[in-house]
Nucleic acid binder design. Structure first.
Lengths: 208, 208
DNA sequence: TATTTTTTAGCACGAACGTGCTTCAACACC
DNA sequence: GGTGTTGAAGCACGTTCGTGCTAAAAAATA
């Protein structure tokens, strides 16, 4: 009966428009009118697929989380496939951590959008649930990575948690600086910092 | 001739209102009307002291940068007054790094406002100059700290820069997590992570 | 071809925004 | 005690926002 349109594909197109607007003009400019223009649609059309502005934003937040989570999961599998301590594993780990950094234009858009939504979630309660999911998802991957890289010591649970949070903080800090001060935080500086951090992981394995 | 009013004090009161609004409702809610209400003034009065909305925001950004810079400078002096390697110095360093974290309500407001302005500066060109100043100021303090804590090796300039950026990233990441996920990133977790980071500084002193 | 249902487009309303401009009140000075 | 400068207040205009609601267009089915 209807015009044959893949609803899910349309929603993804709209979400991509949201991403582009957030990356270039910020989340507060991602209004229905701006999104509709960017997607080449009318406001009524966008509202046909997303019943409200909030629903569009929450869906877009979830979409970027899924994108990042998928990339991290794939990169984590690659890490686990390498032999422990090998240079190949080291490279795979750097690749994994680089998935959340704006190292190319596509990654930069995701990083921008991800940051914008997480900060917006502090204020907008509708985004809180997705923000918590985002944190849990990434923390789980980083936790597995820390367990993999920490020599033995399955008992020192406290150390593992602290080291996971430490790596998580460094990753988000690097992402922030690469987005906000790209002149100072270049891609190779990111790589140097991450390498130094990984060296510090191996060098301070046990508590105290 | 005029009504006797300390203009600078009035400006500071308005700025404090801006801070409270940003901390509780976000930067985008810091409109002239909201700020005037929060300060107990009329829109026209606020505009008497700040000729435009942009000027108010830029001035407020500068104010929070100055607050943080002053605290860091004072804490840095305290660090330099302690004997190198002593537990007192260790405590002073932790205190220094804690100045940018939301460890109490006053610090939390500053951290919120600081983060909000830095992220807004990516989009709003009027804030770019202050954002650069913010980065330079904090980076200078952290650079001095790294030089103070790094054993010898005045030659390895690359290592010092990398370690400064690494500490800077960790600080901002911790600040982010403490603001956005306070359930996970508690004050003691911040302390644990910073302590682990400082241990990693001493443990991996030289390049390679 | 006629019908039915989805998709697309658009209008209208109230609210909030920044800002130019005008008006009122208050106080220091001659 | 006038008087003029300045702080405080507010109106008005044009924009933009979300959203409820209506109307046209398009395509698969009868």
């Amino acid at each position: 009966m209807p015009k044959i349109v893949d609803a899910e594909a349309r929603r993804q197109e709209v979400v991509q428009a949201v991403f582009r607007i957030i990356a270039s003009d910020g989340l507060e400019r991602a209004s229905l009118r701006e999104v509709a223009d960017e997607a080449g649609l009318a406001v009524g059309s966008v509202r046909h697929y997303f019943s409200s502005s909030d629903e569009l934003l929450v869906f877009s937040f979830g979409a970027v989380i899924d994108r990042i989570a998928d990339r991290l999961e794939a990169a984590m599998s690659a890490v686990e496939a390498k032999s422990p301590g090998s240079p190949e594993q080291q490279a795979a780990v750097l690749n994994l951590l680089g998935q959340v950094l704006p190292l190319d234009e596509e990654l930069a858009v995701d990083a921008c959008v991800w940051m914008a939504f997480r900060h917006a979630a502090r204020i907008k309660p509708v985004l809180a649930a997705e923000a918590a999911r985002s944190h849990r998802t990434v923390a789980a991957v980083v936790g597995r990575l820390i367990m993999l890289l920490s020599p033995g010591e399955a008992d020192a649970h406290q150390t593992l948690v602290t080291e996971a949070e430490r790596l998580l903080a460094t990753m988000d800090g690097l992402c922030m600086h690469a987005l906000l001060q790209p002149e100072w935080m270049t891609a190779e500086m990111c790589s140097d910092v991450l390498t130094a951090h990984l060296r510090s992981l191996g060098a301070v394995p046990t508590v105290r």
